[in-house]
């Protein structure tokens, strides 16, 4: 891993190429998380590229029983991502799909199996990537983020990519105060289509989580998976648990957003079009 750590010059054409796989949720709903990722990875000296034809990792179909379609999607994403030195995914769920489930899906076809394994070998969840490449903050958390955060370790970060501790240590390194959230290992109830198919159950699980967030006196929730965050956010609004923090600040943020906030903005390819 060490030898692939580049010099800290983003324009260096010899710098290892990182493909950022933003995931469909970030792409559609929270583009700023994508830009935060670019900032963070570029700071480590990598050349960040965003393959334009990326779509979705295929998990909805895969978990919904559409194995054939999921295989086709897997092959397409593998072909797209294999030219890069690293693939970084700001989601334990989608990273876990590529790392653990693409090889499972393609196990019948030796050549695709090998290609999927090669991809798995260079794919990392964002926090894991930052941790491995020794990301450092430039500055303490900005004032509007200075509060107690509950870190919701998504089940996929915990059990698929096993990277939940990376996010935890990165957040601490950046100076964030993390609350002691009880039952951290318990699912928040999102589960993709589960949330829609079993709405009442999913909401109950989410509210249990939000109650624990309130119990530990946290005023914001941070997670490495946007799915969980959106699920919790949509519930918080209706349970009187929103407005945990002062008005105008967001309660539910991605790890990338909090970390990028502790980094001096660079004049870089990631110039965020202000929204």
């Amino acid at each position: 891993m060490q030898d692939s750590t580049p010099n800290k010059t983003k324009s260096d054409k010899a710098a290892p190429r990182v493909a950022l796989y933003v995931t469909c949720l970030v792409n559609t709903l929270r583009p700023q998380i994508g830009f935060a990722c670019v900032q963070l990875i570029e700071r480590l000296g990598f050349r960040v590229e965003v393959p334009a034809t990326q779509t979705c990792c295929g998990q909805p179909g895969y978990n919904g029983g559409l194995r054939q379609q999921a295989m086709a999607i897997a092959r397409q994403q593998i072909a797209l991502l294999e030219p890069f030195d690293h693939v970084v995914v700001p989601s334990g769920s989608c990273a876990g799909m590529m790392i653990n489930h693409y090889p499972e899906l393609l196990k019948q076809d030796l050549s695709w199996l090998q290609r999927s394994q090669a991809l798995a070998g260079k794919t990392l969840e964002l926090a894991q990537f930052l941790d491995q490449h020794h990301w450092q903050p430039d500055s303490p958390p900005p004032p509007h983020h200075r509060r107690t955060w509950a870190h919701h370790t998504s089940c996929s970060c915990r059990r698929e990519t096993r990277s939940h501790q990376c996010a935890e240590s990165m957040l601490q390194l950046a100076g964030y105060e993390l609350a002691e959230l009880q039952d951290q290992a318990v699912c928040c109830g999102f589960g993709g289509s589960f949330a829609a198919k079993f709405d009442a159950l999913s909401s109950r699980m989410g509210r249990n989580k939000l109650n624990q967030v309130a119990d530990c006196k946290a005023t914001g929730v941070v997670s490495a998976d946007l799915g969980c965050l959106l699920h919790l956010e949509s519930l918080a609004g209706m349970t009187g648990l929103s407005g945990l923090a002062e008005k105008g600040t967001q309660d539910f943020l991605h790890v990338a957003e909090l970390l990028a906030a502790c980094q001096e903005p660079q004049q870089s390819s990631s110039d965020v079009p202000t929204s």
């Binding site: 933003v22 929270r30 700023q32 830009f35 965003v50 949509s234 209706m238 079009p273 929204s275």
Partner: peptide, 27 residues
């Protein structure tokens, strides 16, 4: 929307990929 959920609102001007493309073509 389901009764007990607040609508999820998209943020930013457009999708990440569209913004990224836009910036790329500018530079």
């Amino acid at each position: 929307w389901p009764r007990h959920r607040q609508a999820v609102q998209p943020q930013g001007t457009t999708t990440f990929l569209a913004q990224w493309q836009h910036r790329k073509t500018k530079t």
